[in-house]
Amino acid sequence: MDAFDVLSAGVTAGPLVAGWSVHTLWMRRRLARERLDALTGVPARELFTSFARRDLRRLERAAVLVVDLDGFKAVNDRHGHAAGDAVLVAVAGRLRRWAVSRGGSVGRLGGDEFAATAFIESPAYLPRHLSTLDVALREPVLFREKELAVGASIGSFIHAGLPRVDFTRALRRADEAMYVAKREGGGWRIATGPIPETTTTNGRRTGRPGTTPLPGGAR
C-alpha cells in the first residue's frame, strides 16, 4: 500500500471512527440519563446505591438518611399531580443541596421517598444538621401562585468509623428510624447502636407501623 492508499484509508476511516466516538458518547449519556430519576433529575435507586456505597468506603463518619414526605397524598388530591410533581422536584433539590454541601449523595428511592448520605464531623453534630435539613424541607413550595405545605419524616443512621458497614443494612436502620419519626408526627430521629444481623420482623422492616418500636435514638 503506497502513501496515497494509506492517506485514502485514513480519510475514509476518519468519519467512521468519529461516528463511533459520537455514538459511544451518546450511549453513555443515555445510560446515565436512564439511571437518573426522570422527574427530579437525582440518581434513581440503583445509581444512588452505587454512590452511597462509595461514600461509606471513603468517609470516616458518614450519615445515611431516609426521607419520606408527610401529607404528600393530600397535595395530590387537593391540587393535582402536577402540584405533587412540583413538591417532589423542590424537595429533591433541597435535599441535594444539603447532602452535596456535606460531601454526600442523594437519590430517589421511589414515590415520595428519598435517601442521602452526608459527611458529619462528629455524631454529636448530627442533630444540628438534621434540624437544618428539617427546616429546609418544610419550607412551602410555590406552585401556580399557591404555597403548598410540605412535611417530612427523616430517619438517620451514622457510620462513625465502623469497619465493613454494609450500606443495605445501614439504609434499613435509617428507614426504621424514619418510620419511628413518622409515627411520632414527623421530624427526625437517629438510629443508634450496632447494626443487628437482621432488621426484619415477620418479614417486615422493624420500625414500620405495627412492628416493634426502634430502641434508642433522639428526635
Rank of each mutant, 00 (worst) to 15 (best):
Glu46Pro: 04
Glu46Ile: 08
Phe48Pro: 02
Phe48Met: 08
Ser50Glu: 15
Phe51Gly: 00
Phe51Trp: 12
Ala52Asn: 03
Asp55Leu: 04
Arg58Met: 09
Leu59Asp: 12
Leu59His: 10
Arg61Tyr: 05
Ala63Glu: 02
Val64Phe: 01
Val64Asp: 05
Leu65Tyr: 06
Val66Trp: 01
Asp68Phe: 00
Leu69Ser: 06
Leu69Phe: 02
Leu69Ala: 11
Gly71Lys: 04
Phe72His: 00
Phe72Lys: 03
Ala74Met: 06
Val75Asn: 01
Val75Asp: 00
Asn76Trp: 01
Arg78Phe: 00
His79Tyr: 10
Ala82Cys: 03
Val87Met: 10
Val87Lys: 04
Gly93Trp: 00
Gly93Pro: 05
Gly93Val: 07
Arg94Trp: 02
Arg94Leu: 05
Arg96Cys: 08
Arg97Pro: 09
Arg97Val: 13
Arg97Met: 08
Arg97Gly: 13
Trp98Asn: 13
Ala99Glu: 07
Val100Arg: 15
Val100Cys: 13
Val100Lys: 15
Ser101Gly: 11
Gly104Glu: 14
Val106Glu: 05
Arg108Met: 05
Arg108Glu: 07
Leu109Ile: 05
Gly110Asp: 08
Gly110Val: 07
Gly110Asn: 06
Gly111Phe: 02
Asp112Met: 00
Glu113Tyr: 00
Glu113His: 03
Glu113Leu: 03
Phe114Asp: 09
Ala115Asn: 14
Thr117Val: 03
Thr117Leu: 11
Ala118Tyr: 03
Ile120Pro: 00
Ile120Leu: 10
Glu121Met: 05
Pro123Glu: 06
Pro123Ser: 03
Ala124Gln: 13
Ala124Val: 11
Ala124Pro: 00
Ala124Tyr: 00
Tyr125Glu: 15
Tyr125Trp: 11
Leu126Ser: 12
Leu126Pro: 01
Leu126Arg: 03
Leu126Gly: 07
Pro127Asp: 06
Pro127Leu: 14
Arg128His: 13
His129Gln: 15
His129Ile: 09
His129Asn: 14
Leu130Cys: 08
Ser131Asn: 15
Ser131Ala: 15
Thr132Ile: 11
Thr132Cys: 13
Leu133Thr: 10
Asp134Trp: 12
Ala136Ser: 14
Ala136Tyr: 01
Arg138Ala: 12
Glu139Met: 14
Pro140Phe: 02
Pro140Leu: 11
Pro140Gly: 11
Val141Tyr: 01
Val141Ala: 08
Phe143Tyr: 13
Arg144Ser: 14
Arg144Ile: 05
Arg144Gly: 03
Arg144Tyr: 08
Glu145Val: 07
Lys146Asp: 14
Lys146Phe: 01
Lys146Glu: 15
Glu147Tyr: 12
Leu148Gln: 10
Leu148Tyr: 09
Ala149Asp: 11
Val150Pro: 04
Gly151Asp: 11
Ala152Lys: 07
Ala152Arg: 08
Ser153Glu: 06
Ile154Ala: 02
Ile154His: 06
Gly155Asn: 10
Gly155Phe: 04
